[in-house]
């Protein structure tokens, strides 16, 4: 099993697991975690396929794309977490506040 195949398959598994988690997990935090994992899966597929030829340095384009993707993912995660925080805080305000 070449590293490319190994990591690309792992990417596929992570993508499916993350996507299924998004739909099947009830808790919102876990949904947010799932999205992050599915994203990592796609990134793994991207970068694994970039180094199919062992004697040539890996293709830099997918690496750059994945870097962009990571930054986009952290932005989306931060927004999702801020929304989540607002949501969990809200009901506690009324009885105690």
């Amino acid at each position: 099993m070449t590293p490319t195949l190994n990591y690309a398959l792992t990417g596929v598994v992570l993508f499916s697991v993350g996507l299924s988690g998004l739909f099947f997990c009830a808790h919102l935090l876990r949904k947010i975690l799932s999205v992050n994992m599915a994203g990592s899966g796609v990134f793994l597929v991207f970068v694994a396929l970039a180094r199919r030829q062992p004697d040539v340095p890996p293709d830099p384009v997918p690496q750059a794309l994945v870097l962009t993707g990571i930054v986009v993912a952290v932005s989306a995660t931060a927004v999702a977490l801020a929304l989540f925080r607002r949501l969990t805080h809200e009901p506690a305000e009324e009885p105690h506040g």
């Binding site: 590293p3 990591y7 792992t10 970068v47 690496q63 994945v66 870097l67 930054v71």
Partner: peptide
């Protein structure tokens, strides 16, 4: 994993 795939830039960011 990124290091193993030779994507050191990505590894740093990750």
């Amino acid at each position: 994993a990124w290091c193993r795939l030779g994507a050191v830039d990505v590894a740093l960011a990750e």
